[in-house]
Amino acid sequence: MQTALRGLFLLLLIVSLQAPGVIAADEPGESGSPIDVMGKILDHDYIEIAGKKVYLPRIFYSAGQFYFYSNTASALDSGEFEMSEAGIVRSDGTPVAIDFSITSHLMYVWFGIIFTLLISWWAARRYRKGVGSETEPKGVWQNLFEVFFIFIRDDIAKEYIPGEKYKKYVTYLFSVFMAIAFMNLFGLFPWGVSPTADLTVTATLAAITFFITQFSGTKDHWEHVFLFPGVHPLVRIILTPVEIIGLFTKPFALAIRLFANMLSGKIMIVCILGLIFIFTDLFGAAFGVTSGVVWVALTALLYILKAFIALLQAYIFTLLSAVFIGMAAEEHHHEEHESSVATATDVNV
């Protein structure tokens, strides 16, 4: 365990000292600023592997027909498409109905899902063989897996989803936790991108939680949304719209929270490293390079903070998903409550 922790720490150290160089090695931005902040944040049509750009396929659906190209350049070469201000468009003016192109963020979402699947398969095979289920879990990785899994099952699912219902949701909560944690942590690696800093990715994840929440809603849940038992009918005019809006703001806040947290970390790191170049522009190369010592050290510290935030945000997303599902799946016992109130008033009368 100790050697594994030491290795993990060393990896973090290497990564946190390596990645600033990678960010800094990028070409300057188009708007004349010395460092390209938006370029680090936006989605691209390529992924970078060790500094080399690997262009990803472009797929378009336009006027009832699919167009496949191995990359953007070949799509432009074919003459069917051309570049415009807003992105890629058809040359003859037909609108592109849906852009199915595979982008860097999508690739990293897939990596996150594949990693989660592989880990779950690997662990499931071991437990089926009897390691861990009959004997004690063996090895660092299985212990680590068990720590995460039991944490999510006992501290999140069991705690917030009432009764025996939690068993149904453990699989979703665990996979969403692992996938988000991987996606967040990918951003720490040199050339890596964290796809959770894209609103579409987090919105998709929040939408999954939204649908699971709605489909697991009990009668009591819907009763509490549309009619409020024991509330004056006129109050319902105010409360019902608020509750219906509340159904949608919950997943919305879920998406925005994850997105904004990951994006702010990314922007912060790029901006702090960008100070080197800004100072070089302002006061000359000597001052810029010397001050770089401070900024790189600060970035290395920020990386450790970001690694913590990556896990924390995955935890918060999972926790809130469990809370929302638990709120919907809860079964109230009004009858007892109301009857006790009734008897109390009877006594008073």
Binding site: A253, I256, V323
Partner: peptide, 13 residues
């Protein structure tokens, strides 16, 4: 953490 996450959500919006 749960309560802080709710406040954070409002602040981020």
């Amino acid at each position: 953490i749960l309560t802080a996450a709710f406040i954070e959500g409002v602040a981020l919006i």
